[in-house]
């Protein structure tokens, strides 16, 4: 008898195993310092239905992103904090970003992330396009002491793809981070991020 695997996409309000909130529950109400802060783009374009879930079904980029984020947090419990951004920035201690809405205000997200930029934490930006204020964001990124790795997701038109790739590469290079394009339709995003971070047996190399 074969068991069919079905993806379970976490919904806003769920507490993902391995998230900051879940680990705080386990640690008797204490928060351990995260090693990675994921800046997750949940702008309106994440509504596009061109991504794939782990079980192979086509889904919204947002849904596939939530599934992969959950997987990432499960693999590296307590080491990942999620910061979702669109027009506004939302802290997601439960590990699930809010539903897609608004524009891509990366500048505000970086400003928020800067508050936790102690030098002992790494940032991973997961986004599908160009931010509202690219130059300001790039300028702000240069002032980070921790490195920012950038992962470009989604399908783009050729010209748009090139622009997005150029921006993300510049952003990663500004902080000594790495740029990566996820070509799996987000199906292997968690694996790719883990590869990008150079994680071996749960140990993350911080800068």
């Amino acid at each position: 008898m074969t068991t069919e695997f079905t993806s379970i996409v976490p919904r806003p309000g769920d507490i993902v195993p391995g998230s900051v909130a879940a680990m705080a529950r386990q640690n008797g109400g204490k928060v351990a310092p995260p090693e990675i802060i994921v800046l997750f783009d949940h702008s309106y374009s994440m509504d596009a239905k061109d991504a794939r879930l782990l079980d192979g079904r086509t889904a919204m980029r947002y849904e596939a992103g939530c599934e992969q984020l959950a997987l990432l947090q499960r693999r590296l419990p307590g080491k990942i904090a999620v910061l979702a951004f669109s027009s506004d920035v939302t802290v997601c201690p439960n590990g699930v970003p809010p539903a897609p809405t608004g524009t891509t205000n990366l500048y505000d997200a970086l400003q928020k992330a800067k508050q936790a930029d102690s030098g002992a934490v790494r940032f991973v930006l997961i986004s599908d396009g160009l931010p509202d204020n690219a130059n300001n964001a790039l300028e702000l990124a240069r002032s980070f002491s921790g490195q920012i790795d950038a992962v470009l997701i989604g399908n783009h038109y050729e010209a748009e793809a090139q622009m997005a790739e150029d921006f993300m590469t510049a952003l990663a290079a500004a902080t000594g981070g790495t740029f990566m394009r996820d070509a799996s339709g987000m199906r292997a995003l968690a694996d790719n991020v883990i590869k990008l971070l150079g994680v071996s047996d749960g140990t993350i190399t911080t800068v």
Partner: peptide, 11 residues
């Protein structure tokens, strides 16, 4: 939550 995370990171 964010202040707790940032605080832990700085510590």
């Amino acid at each position: 939550w964010w202040s707790a995370i940032a605080n832990a990171s700085h510590q």
